[in-house]
Design a protein around this nucleic acid. Structure first.
Length: 260
DNA sequence: ATGTCACTTTACAAGTGA
């Protein structure tokens, strides 16, 4: 079995105690982190070593930042990807565990439809699709996990009519996710759960978590060989509760994937 | 109900990004 967890932590420094607790609770082989929001040398590697994990970090000061935390060493670790239109932003990190290529991504947020930031998001997604499809084989074992900042379809939205056409749910973004699926990736959660829901993100504002106003933005996409091995995909919703664990929660909940 | 959180800096308050 291989267990992989992905979680947008919204600052590793604010979430170190919760990350350690999560490693002990789920005992994953790999934990993918997004929005680490720290430079490499500010990542709490030693605190995670104490729980039995080593870290590969692609960070930058203050924003973005991704990491792969694992018990075994990963091989062929690569920071970023060729053709990235935002090469100064730390958003993609790849490594191999026992023949499985693991890619973690933190997709551009996009702010709002019609803004320059939204156009950058679409171009960045185009580059991600181009790199994955040109540089990989859909018959090889590959899993892409992270915060895609896109709710793939209406089942992933608490109120699809209210969100339709807005950033995180708009058709152009959804078409980019669709392009990944057409290339050969499978939305692993939907193998096991027809929806609607579950959600993985709730805005900090408006009491959104308490009111159930969530989206599914955190995805695990696998090639066919990975989909055939996939036994479960679940969301650790407890982790989003303010009363759960030490300190404050991230605005995202972790997604747990198990492969045979 | 734009009601939060975490980052940064011309830092002890305000702007940015999500």
């Amino acid at each position: 079995m291989v267990k992989i967890v992905t979680w947008n932590v919204n600052s590793i420094r604010m979430r170190t105690a919760r990350v350690r607790a999560l490693l002990e609770r789920h005992a994953p082989d790999v934990l993918c982190l997004q929005e680490v929001k720290a430079a490499d040398d500010a990542f709490p590697s030693q605190e995670l070593v104490e729980t039995g994990y080593r870290s590969e970090v692609y960070g930058q000061p203050g924003r973005n930042g991704v990491a792969l935390v694992s018990r075994e060493s990963l091989t062929d670790v690569v920071r970023g990807f060729p053709g990235d239109p935002l090469p100064d932003q730390a958003r993609v990190l790849s490594g191999t565990l026992r023949g499985l290529r693991v890619v973690t991504v933190y997709v551009v947020n996009g702010k709002a439809v019609g803004t320059p930031e939204y156009d950058v998001k679409l171009r960045w997604l185009d580059a991600l699709v181009a790199w994955l499809s040109a540089g990989h084989d859909p018959d090889d074992p590959l899993i892409v996990l992270g915060d895609f900042n896109v709710a793939p379809d209406d089942r992933d939205v608490h109120d699809p009519d209210r969100w339709r056409g807005s950033n995180l749910c708009s058709d152009p973004e959804r078409r980019r996710i669709g392009a990944l699926l057409e290339w050969g990736l499978v939305d692993l959660l939907r193998l096991h759960d027809p929806g609607p829901g579950p959600f993985t993100w709730w805005d900090y504002r408006d009491g959104a978590f308490h009111r159930g106003l969530g989206l599914r933005l955190d995805l695990a996409l696998g090639t066919r060989p990975v989909a055939e091995r996939c036994r479960s995909v679940t969301v650790d919703r407890d982790e989003r509760k303010p009363t759960f664990g030490e300190g404050k929660p991230s605005d995202h909940a972790p997604v747990i994937v198990t492969l045979a």
